[in-house]
Simulated scan of single mutants.
Amino acid sequence: MLTRKQLELLDFINKRVTRDGVPPSFDEMKDALSLRSKSGIHRLITALEERGFIRRLAHRARAIEIIKLPDALDKGLAGGFKPQVIEGDKVDPPRNAMPVALGHAVELPVMGRIAAGTPIEAISEVSHNVSVPGGMVDANSHHYALEVKGDSMIDAGINDGDVVVIRETSAADNGDIVVALVEGHEATLKRYRRKGNMIALEAANPAYETRMLPDDKVKVQGRLVGLIRTY
């Protein structure tokens, strides 16, 4: 799955290659996506290459080859990660929100706030409970909820003030959005990637740098399975 910014960049490159026969420059990409620096473009390009959508050709300027396009571009849609969203009363849902069949509700403890930005102190106390659709959780696993603080995951559809539903687990696959405990006392919500004996905690906002840590400094506390937003 691609984030919104990754999809926008891939779409822009594809359109320019189709029109001009050559990809745009990094400055043109930066301007097209309204980013403040080219470092954000470098991260997006690297992510697209890692996911197999493009290939950079060595020793050639502006040499980017489109390998494949996601279904979202073929259909002319904006895509990326789409968490399950419980709709608020009397307000139309977001354009890209995934509909949820409520069914029976399950009460989950809200364990406090999780930082989608600079890591905050680890969370261990229940502040209140929240009702979530039964279909959002696995009856054989333990789940909890956290309130999001910060904007580092906005391109994954996770905003400041959202409540994320987390399935408790100590394991994660590359690309999962996880609750990570850093050095035993900081908790953060980030995309997880293992690179040898290092763990990359990636933001979904070009304004934030990826944090690289030795694997013994990061413990996965859970994986994102849903999201609740009120209006």
Rank of each mutant, 00 (worst) to 15 (best):
L2N: 06
Q6W: 00
L7F: 00
E8M: 04
L10A: 02
L10S: 02
R16M: 09
D20G: 01
G21K: 07
P23E: 11
S25Y: 05
S25F: 04
E28Y: 05
A32L: 09
S37T: 15
S39T: 12
H42N: 15
R43D: 15
G52W: 04
I64T: 13
E65P: 10
E65D: 15
I66Q: 13
I66L: 11
L69H: 08
D71A: 15
A72M: 12
L73Q: 08
G79N: 07
G79P: 07
G80K: 05
Q84T: 15
V85M: 15
V85I: 13
V85W: 03
I86F: 08
I86D: 02
R95M: 13
M98A: 12
A101H: 02
L102T: 05
G103C: 06
G103V: 10
V106T: 03
V110Q: 00
M111N: 06
R113M: 11
T118A: 15
E121Y: 10
I123N: 11
M136V: 04
M136Q: 04
D138N: 10
S141E: 12
H143I: 02
H143N: 03
L146D: 02
L146Y: 01
G150L: 07
I154K: 11
A156M: 11
G157C: 03
D160K: 02
I166F: 03
E168W: 00
D173M: 13
G175W: 06
I177G: 08
V178E: 00
A180M: 00
L181T: 10
V182C: 05
R191M: 14
R191S: 09
R193I: 06
G196R: 06
M198S: 12
M198K: 13
A200P: 03
N205S: 12
Y208R: 00
Y208I: 12
E209C: 09
K217S: 09
K219D: 11
V225N: 00
I228W: 03
R229C: 00
